[in-house]
């Protein structure tokens, strides 16, 4: 197992290189450039050129990439083009809120979705099942901006019981309860999306398990339905569920682009949008690389979890 993980970690290096090259190309191919953001009517062409030169934007792409890579190797993420603040400082400010929002949303989503999906499978084709699958399809079909704006309209504008966005009240120290109040709406939006997806997988995976012969064996042994579910059902149904979890994990650091925008949540997702708008290459590259690392680590975690759950899966 240790050997396997080390091997996987070593594979990271070439993979991250490829990703960085791809991302660097795409980011630089996008129309517009960072200097456009600084341009004001009273700037001369020489001044614009001088800024470009200072940012290294006039170098050939290969040189720019080489510079970026050598900096990254030294642990230097560079400076933001637009704010001149070190990228690492910006990220460290933004990662906290995203981690908080995404991890709470995922925990809430799974705590609801996995039991509901299993229940729905256990009572397949019953009213409970129809309600759960109905909710799940509604969750999948509702775009997050629509749900988010709808919730803001109802709870913030009409009922005035919850804030429209942000992480806390400005100017006053509202404490923990205030933070919690700010979390409610974005968590509902994100959790409903994660949950809707997870319910479908949990349900179908559990239904599949219920049709297996070993469930019939367990019934013939005289086990009660709950014992069958607990001892023979859940563990076997976990593999597809783990796959979905693995796909969700990177979002914990990657953030949620739309939802963070709607609720003015100062996380990685909204940072990404603003840095795309200002063509802030160093920030964009940093976010891309962090997401890439998160995906790779999530993949390893998923593989380890597979092996823990299913004795047939062995590392070699």
């Amino acid at each position: 197992m240790k050997k396997y993980i080390i091997k996987r970690l070593l594979i990271f290096i070439p993979v991250l290189f490829m990703i960085s090259i791809g991302a660097f190309l795409i980011v630089n191919l996008a129309p517009g450039n960072p200097v456009d953001m600084y341009v004001s009517p009273d700037m001369t062409v020489e001044q614009i050129e001088a800024t470009k030169e200072a940012l290294g934007l006039n170098d050939p792409l290969i040189v720019q990439y080489a510079k970026w890579v050598t900096n990254i190797m030294r642990g230097n993420l560079g400076f933001s083009f637009s704010s001149r603040i070190p990228v690492s400082t910006i990220l460290s400010q933004r990662v906290g809120p995203t981690l908080l929002l995404m991890s709470i949303s995922l925990v809430v989503a799974y705590a609801l979705a996995i039991p509901l999906g299993i229940l729905s499978a256990k009572k397949q084709n019953s009213i409970v099942d129809y309600i759960v699958t109905g909710l799940s399809f509604t969750g999948i079909s509702l775009p997050s901006f629509f749900l988010g704006l709808g919730l803001i309209y109802v709870f913030a504008v009409q009922l005035k019981c919850l804030p429209t966005g942000g992480t806390k009240l400005l100017g006053v120290d509202g404490g923990f309860s205030d933070q919690l109040r700010h979390l409610i709406l974005p968590v509902i939006v994100l959790a409903s999306q994660f949950a809707a997806n997870m319910i479908r997988y949990a349900r179908s995976s559990m239904i599949e398990v219920y049709n297996e012969n070993y469930i019939r064996t367990a019934t013939a042994k005289g086990l009660k339905p709950m014992q069958i579910l607990k001892n023979h059902g859940v563990r076997n149904a976990l593999i597809p569920i783990i796959t979905v979890i693995g796909a969700d994990i990177p979002k914990i650091v990657g953030g949620a682009i739309v939802t963070e925008q709607i609720f003015q949540w100062p996380g990685i997702g909204s940072l990404m949008v603003s840095s795309i708008n200002s063509r802030d290459y160093p920030v964009l590259m940093a976010i891309t690389m962090i997401s890439a690392v998160a995906v790779l680590i999530a993949n390893i975690l998923v593989d380890i979890m597979y092996a823990v759950v299913d004795p047939r899966i062995k590392f070699s």
């Binding site: 297996e212 012969n213 019934t219 005289g222 086990l223």
Partner: peptide
């Protein structure tokens, strides 16, 4: 079930819980 009346099934490959 299992106490007074037990069953042996046709397909031993799939009738046991793999985990």
């Amino acid at each position: 079930r299992g106490k007074d009346i037990a069953m042996i099934f046709q397909d031993p490959m799939t009738s046991l819980n793999p985990t």
